[in-house]
Design a protein around this nucleic acid. Sequence first.
RNA 1: GACCCUUUCAUCUAGUGGCCAAGGAUGCUACGUUUUCAUCGUAGUCACAGAGGUUCAAAUCCUCUAGGGGUCGCCA
Length: 461
Amino acid sequence: MTRFAPSPTGYLHIGGLRTALFSWLTARHNDGKFLLRIEDTDRARNSEEALAAIIKAFDWVGLNYDGDVVYQSKRFDLYKQYIDQLLAEGKAYKCYMSKEELDALREAQMARGERPRYDGRYRDFDGTPPEGVDPVIRIKAPQEGVIRFVDGVKGEIAISADEVDDFIIARSDGTPTYNFVVAIDDALMGLTDVIRGDDHLYNTPKQIVVYNALGFKIPKFYHVAMINNEQGKKLSKRDGATDVMEYKRMGYLPEALLNFLVRLGWSHGDQEIFSLEEMIALFDPKDINKSASSYSPDKLLWLNAHYIKNTPNAKLAELLREFGVDIADHDRLEILLDATKERGKTLVELAEQINLILEAPSSYDPKAVKKAFKGDAKAILTDFIAMLQTWEKPLHLPSDYHAVLEKLIEEKEIGFGKIGMPLRVALVGALRGPGVDEMMAIIGVDETIERIEKAVATIEI
RNA sequence: GACCCUUUCAUCUAGUGGCCAAGGAUGCUACGUUUUCAUCGUAGUCACAGAGGUUCAAAUCCUCUAGGGGUCGCCA
């Protein structure tokens, strides 16, 4: 039983998706459940749009969660019960310290070179509380010893008790705080494995304090190191997209993104390509790396190219709709995509490749013209048109067109390049792209002749 | 500033004391295939952060130093 617990303050971050993936894989590997919980206890910072964006991103990559989404904001009554319980048991207490006093205390501690923390002044307070102050509730953390736990990634972690102060579990307005509700929910939802970013490492001892105070069973923790940029610094928008949905817009396939992310901080021998099924079969959180990894988009691009090549054409045609290419009903769909899908590393590039063929060239690349439209190119192209027009066999497949070319070469006693190059430029305006046979088969004989005629008209001499 | 985590090619990583004068992948550079581009194939390029120890033997264990990251909120 695992979970992903984002706070709805922005889009789904690429790093967040990796943690979610690790959790999801752990659950699926063990035939367990994967739950989604929204950490929205801070009402001031949440937004509906952010929540919708996160769910949408989950949808896109295909990580399914079990049961209903849990909203912490709807469980305040539950948390209140536990606060009252701790208060009644003397495991928590009211603190009347003002924010100003707290700031002053922190500043003084910093000045002395200490780690700032609450000094426990109201821990055993039984005097008269100051007037007009709404108290916060603090939990009693152990005052000596060390808090230990075994992290599934990092190994044994021991944090001295005096690093953990009596932290606030309820604000002065009565709302509960993060470390308190996380521990309660993780326990109540029955989580066995908590996989999260290692920026939470220091929250763990705090949450253990809550587990112990409430008598809950402590789950197994896994703290996954962050993803940095190529320079090893914190990943920012300048290093490329951090919003998961941005990858969709850039033409990445979700399976490529997931394959890329799973190999960031995890590996299984030398294997690079993992289908979702293989990931589920092979993933074990104990194999997660301790150290931070750097984000480098090259490999993602390579993976994306790989997955595009291996996606069925019908599926590709459907995906391409979002990129302005509607070829689902094209009668040469198979030839078209077979010819182009090895040339586009993203759906955006693939769309460009397709348009290059489907749309008659509006101009001819000057360099290509110089190279191809010379010598007797004009005459050869003209001859080719004539042959196409009088060809008696059907012209459907690339091989049909190839036969015409063969005949031309034979009759004129020329090399393939003599016709290939100018023909290519006539068809697409440049010296690149799929084979001319394929391209002619895709656009058909009429369009082929039209394009060649148009090109011939531009050739001087 | 204090505390915690971390350190193998440019990047992702394999590696748990001898199989490692360190393997795979991406990138990059050649060459081959291709009428072109791409794909694909072959080859090359490139690393154990540094210094001390322990040991017959260390990338692997220990110590220190340095780099990087994280945390110190009535945020999550």
